[in-house]
Design a protein around this nucleic acid. Structure first.
Length: 111
DNA sequence: ACACTGACCACTG
DNA sequence: CCAGTGGCCAGTG
């Protein structure tokens, strides 16, 4: 057993729990996991997750709803296309009606 | 062992 | 209101 239960896996689990058509932010996940987690670590974890698992990293954007992580995808438009397939409108690398599609793990999972 | 970097966020001026 | 800076934690050079 490698006890690789690092925060990476926690981030992946939360990301997988994001329902289709919804998005969340790095800070929201970080806050949900705990104070030991910083928003930077979330993005970093997702960077590894994208290479390892089927984690819907395209559903995770920054606080402004901007697709900052799209540059890490296979293609510069991959993230946007995936979001649009789920009914999320994206324009100029930014999620439209971000607050409407926003899915907060703290608000949905904390119960 | 040290310094810099990174898919960020919040506070201060 | 906009711009700048610090804090966050871990990995890599």
């Amino acid at each position: 057993m490698k006890t690789e239960n690092s925060f990476f896996e926690d981030v992946w689990e939360v990301a997988k729990l994001i329902p289709p058509g919804r998005v969340t932010s790095y800070g929201a996940i970080a806050n949900y996991l705990g104070t030991k987690m910083s928003a930077r670590m979330v993005g970093w974890a997702l960077n590894s997750s994208a290479l390892q698992h089927d984690v819907p990293a395209h559903r995770v954007v920054n606080r402004n709803g901007m697709l900052t992580g799209k540059i890490h995808f296979s293609t510069p438009t991959r993230m946007q296309e995936l979001l649009e397939k789920e009914g999320i409108k994206v324009e100029y690398d930014k999620v439209l009606s971000f607050d409407k599609h926003f899915w907060d793990p703290m608000n949905e999972l904390k119960l």
